[in-house]
């Protein structure tokens, strides 16, 4: 509320160029709003939002079981774990690493589970720049089909403490 009331009839409906400008801005807002659901279904890059409630202990144990039964090698002491095509794989985020290294085959579809053991982290797949939140207590499932082979880096893009800058991981995609 202002100290002095404006005079009665202060509102002037937009006319002419102002009305055109407001109309264009509103139209663009509507187009961009519709683009979000459109790109979700046709862009095939966004998460479907599939997530489940899980305890940190249960998730940690499942990752360990996954690593023990699917390890195909190691790199600098980190196990390289291959997911069976069409199967479920488990990636764990914790201060300050992603564990284990995931190995995939190009063109195959996988369900990659991601969760955290301690606090909130960010999963940022580079150089594709696909980004997802990683939360303790929630199992976020990404259904992924790699379309190119190579070594892809995962970096944490949610500040998680003094070792945040060193929190990286790796996904290897083979032909």
């Amino acid at each position: 509320m202002s100290i002095y009331n404006p005079p009665a009839g202060w509102f002037k409906a937009p006319t002419g160029a102002e009305r055109l400008w407001v109309g264009l801005a509103l139209t663009w807002c509507i187009i961009m709003s519709l683009a979000m659901p459109y790109w979700h279904f046709y862009g095939k890059q966004n998460s479907t939002g599939e997530s489940y409630r899980v305890s940190v202990a249960d998730y940690g144990a499942r990752v360990q079981q996954f690593v023990e039964s699917n390890t195909v090698g190691t790199e600098q002491g980190v196990p390289i774990v291959e997911i069976a095509p069409g199967g479920d794989g488990y990636l764990l985020a914790r201060m300050w690493a992603f564990y284990p290294i995931i190995k995939l085959k190009k063109g195959q579809t996988y369900r990659l589970h991601i969760s955290s053991l301690d606090l909130q982290h960010g999963f940022s797949l580079q150089p594709l720049n696909m980004n997802f939140q990683v939360l303790p207590g929630y199992d976020h499932v990404l259904t992924i089909t790699p379309t190119s082979s190579g070594i892809f880096s995962i970096i944490c893009n949610e500040f998680c403490g003094i070792g945040h800058h060193s929190m990286t991981g790796r996904i290897i995609v083979e032909d």
Partner: peptide, 8 residues
């Protein structure tokens, strides 16, 4: 509404 994980 978040369901409980089954961790298949």
């Amino acid at each position: 509404l978040v369901p409980t994980a089954t961790l298949p």
